[in-house]
Design a protein around this nucleic acid. Structure first.
Lengths: 346, 346
DNA sequence: CTGTTAGCGCTTTCAA
DNA sequence: TTGAAAGCGCTAACAG
């Protein structure tokens, strides 16, 4: 009856204008009925709601964002989604954001600094209201500088730095305690395996914890085994485990590495934990299902994300930037697991 | 010198207007220099580029999206990010999108239908140019209907349906072949363990493949063991493996389940693969590092995502919708692994 | 409680 | 090759 030709072309692209017309009100009233329901009479509001729903009306977010208001989007920058740690974290972020009516715009850096900057620019261009990120090194991060320049609230995850708001766990202390634990189990020759230290401050913290822990137990720290890429770790690990002075326990900088070590051990004919104790760091869910169950330091990955989102929401609500004082160390826990036991006699 | 007060307030929120002014050209020229460089004289273009960079100018995407052009965003809807299958897939999508200059807006449904619809509405409201999704059941999906209504290009991933463009693998055939393989290894009592069939058509396909495979080998299919939640699978699995007529091989509908089965087997005192063969489906990366290495049907998860993005890009470029004819079965492969062997004698 | 109106920053005809 | 100008759909004063 009304406009057959046009309605055929764009059957469901109903805009606020169309809804207003059908409801016999102005577009302002339609807008208000969604954004400030209290300011609209119940009858009008209900009528608009019904008509909007029937027309399949969806408010155009690009328009409301442009209008200078809130984009209702948070940006997320993580190294990769292939490590369950970050996937779990992103899941927490996604859940918390969604509960708060926000969407997320994720970007991955593959541990590359230049990608961090690219990602941030993209997010800023899209008017994100806040950013959650994991950077290589907060100290010299150009990406971080760009965010601050723009005065967009941000929270670092997993990173730790006195000048920035950070959410994570005290990895140094956690590893120190773990080393202490191993020492108490009789281990003297405890090795550490890590990814590239230069690629992440988390690895550096954990290594510091290892060194402190060894020193506290008056043990000599063998050289750190740095494995640049998890994919090519088999060779070096095999060497470590077949060497004449092989360790009785291996502390790994992350769970993915720990799993590799367990496999390398099996291939080298070592039983875990009887011949070799292996402990990880991260607490990825899958570790619980392994045989033996991975003993590890469990970070609350999902909660780290959730907490970051909460901080961002507070900042958005208050309009105040998030200072370093808002940093929080979430509690970690130790999963006893089955991959760690009393030192084997040599 | 110029406007100290204002420049202090918004140090880096340079808009196109500011750039144009500094460059002594109109905003139209600035816009063109980025979007249609060929239409601007090299000298002007270069001058604008330099000034824009120095001012930290980032084009406001909300504005360009609103103006009716391309949002350069793709929507993604997956059940969860906690299953590495979807994390791997999302990583592929993210990489391909980024290469093409697009961002992604992900949403998770937790296998809940109503969440599918919510997610789609959110994406549509944000003017995504295309959607990649995994739905529970393409047949009656209201979410799918809403996308089609809007004429937004979309591609289903993992799902298979004659009326929609789908990217995935032929799971039915894959499982059938796997069963054939097991039968040739001497297995007669082959069980299947699956998540809720009603929650995903993938599970249904794989189950069909199992039934066909068993029939083809003239074997009786024991009742399917349906495990609603992976988290509570331990009890039922234990029962299956300790039963008097326990299987010599178990086909699992996905890798996460297979890993649980391997653990349940160990706890029941069964050795894998000597006493029990276990095969999975999905090919998550971690399966390779397990002991024993998980034998499984490997789907190219990252490529499924990449391929979906490519289809979307083509649709965007051509303006034509993607028809069911564009559906593609990507090749799967079998990872021999170490969790599968000749049937044990009973 | 509701309507009118002025843009948000950008892209794109249409002219020059 | 460049500029002027018209909105994209929406929100937020400001009136009534």
């Amino acid at each position: 009856l009304s406009r057959p030709a046009e309605s055929r072309l764009r059957p469901a692209a109903a805009g606020i204008q169309a809804v207003a017309q059908r409801a016999g009100v102005s577009i302002a009233t339609v807008s208000r009925s969604f954004n400030r329901p209290a300011q609209v009479s119940p009858a009008t509001r209900e009528s608009i709601r019904r008509i909007a729903e029937q027309m399949g009306y969806l408010p155009n977010r690009a328009a409301s964002t442009l209008r200078g208001q809130r984009s209702r989007v948070l940006g997320v920058v993580v190294p990769t989604l292939l490590n369950p740690v970050f996937a779990e974290c992103l899941a927490g972020i996604a859940a918390a954001s969604s509960e708060g009516g926000y969407s997320i715009l994720p970007a991955t850096t593959h541990y590359r600094i230049e990608q961090e900057e690219r990602a941030i620019d993209e997010l800023l261009a899209r008017s994100v209201e806040g950013v959650l990120l994991v950077v290589s090194n907060p100290e010299h991060s150009q990406a971080l500088a760009r965010i601050r320049e723009r005065r967009v609230p941000y929270v670092l995850m997993y990173n730790r730095h006195p000048a920035h708001p950070c959410v994570g766990v005290d990895g140094e202390r956690a590893v120190m305690e773990m080393v202490d634990r191993l020492a108490k189990l009789g281990h003297r020759n405890i090795a550490m395996v890590s990814g590239r230290l230069s690629a992440s401050d988390r690895a550096q913290q954990r290594y510091r914890g290892y060194v402190s822990g060894m020193r506290a137990s008056r043990l000599a720290s063998p050289a750190l085994l740095e494995v640049p890429f998890v994919e090519t770790s088999a060779g070096p690990l095999d060497e470590l485990l077949r060497g004449r002075s092989r360790p009785t326990a291996v502390v790994c900088s992350n769970d993915l590495l720990a799993i590799r070590v367990m496999r390398a051990a099996a291939l080298a004919g070592l039983r875990v934990p009887q011949d070799l104790s292996v402990v990880g760091f991260d607490g990825i869910a899958l570790g619980k299902d392994l045989i033996p169950m991975l003993s590890t330091i469990v970070q609350p990955n999902g909660d780290i994300g959730r907490r970051g989102v909460e901080l961002l929401f507070e900042a958005v609500a208050s309009g105040a930037p998030i200072g370093p004082a808002a940093s929080v160390d979430l509690p970690y826990s130790v999963r006893e697991g089955e991959s760690c036991a009393t030192a084997s006699l040599r």
